[in-house]
Design a protein around this nucleic acid. Structure first.
Lengths: 196, 196
DNA sequence: AGTGTGCTAGACTGGGCGGTCTAGTCCGCT
DNA sequence: AGCGGACTAGACCGCCCAGTCTAGCACACT
């Protein structure tokens, strides 16, 4: 089916366009970028809004960060998660995605919930499940695991995301160290083992 | 001078308009909202972009949260800060401001830095100074106070802000409790006193 | 060869907007 | 009374854009 390929190309071009220009990007520019006639865009998506929604839905599936639930060292496991999550969220693409989605979400309230659930929400739930296990095993202080998961994720990207959004900081090589420091802090607050 | 009053009215109307409609808000609507002719807007601001920048600058001065640096109980002091900061950031106005500024910041890179410095950056610096004092007094674990301040602020608003931005959560009455729990976590990670 | 389908380029419509211009009104000052 | 500056409503220009329409091209199927 050629249609699928065309649809795919439009979607990809629209994604790139919306991420760089925001919703301002015109349908004609998107068509050009996809190497396709404007009419072809409209033959696959009924309106610009629907195209945007499709892009948003597709984007939201890229965000989820899984956490291996295998037994291994909890600290190492959290550190891997930290680096992966920060990499996804703080990357240029992650920042552009956040900015673009955010500014249009008030117009698409139902979609907004779905995007949240597919990204931050889903990731938090997965993390919370892992933390609960660690709590059950007595390796983490017993407390609301959902709260702990959200707190950990907040610690990981909070102000750093803001800095990137305002163009104040880059996402550099010393990032792994920062992630490690944050994991240390989290463990100090939640680990049942002694602190230094 | 009547001019000042008019300028002020335009600025206020523009602020309200940009916060609710974003940059989409037309100059004519802003003029109407201010009860003023379109020409009057242009007699005070050379272009819509400049008007927007003026609004952004004005908004950024509203964000700073000060922390009393008097000696008192550190935990109580942090808790007051936590409640104040969350109140400012997570309020409907704070969220709208964030969304509006954010989506236009890529076009105004110099302004973006200033807005960051006036808001999050300045608040973090003030908090860091306070934390450093507590560290000097031996009441907090000695560590990079700037990092600690940013981490604390991340903990305070990170995921909660995301939830509000996506319309997933409201800002309700049990907020003070959440702030308190976060302060507890921070103190567990940083306090030099024993933990329960 | 003939038909239909999916595509192409590009013209077109209707509407919105930034920004300018005109003509006229109001008010304070001399 | 007469002048000037700040304001008003509203017309206007040029541009961009979402979405539609037309005419023609290329290829697959029979």
């Amino acid at each position: 089916m050629v249609a699928v390929s065309h649809r795919e190309r439009v979607l990809r071009a629209a994604t790139a366009a919306f991420l760089t220009e925001g919703y301002r990007s015109s349908v004609e520019r998107i068509a050009r970028r996809a190497g396709v006639a404007k009419q072809t865009v409209y033959s696959h998506f009924p309106s610009k809004d629907e195209l945007f929604k499709a892009v948003a839905r597709e984007l939201s599936t890229r965000v989820l960060v899984h956490l291996e639930s295998e037994p291994g060292d909890l600290r190492a496991s959290l550190l891997r998660f930290a680096v992966a999550y920060r990499g996804r969220v703080l990357s240029s693409e992650g920042i552009a995605m956040f900015r673009t989605l955010l500014s249009e979400m008030p117009r698409f309230r139902r979609l907004a919930r779905a995007v949240y659930e597919g990204g931050t929400g889903g990731t938090a739930r997965g993390l919370a499940a892992r933390l609960r296990k660690a709590m059950d095993a007595g390796r983490l202080r017993r407390e609301d695991p959902q709260f702990a998961a959200e707190l950990f994720m907040s610690m990981l990207v909070g102000v750093d995301r803001i800095k990137r959004l305002y163009g104040v900081a880059r996402f550099g090589e010393n990032d792994a160290r920062r992630a490690a420091r944050i994991v240390d802090c989290f463990m100090r607050a939640y680990s049942t083992e002694g602190h230094s």
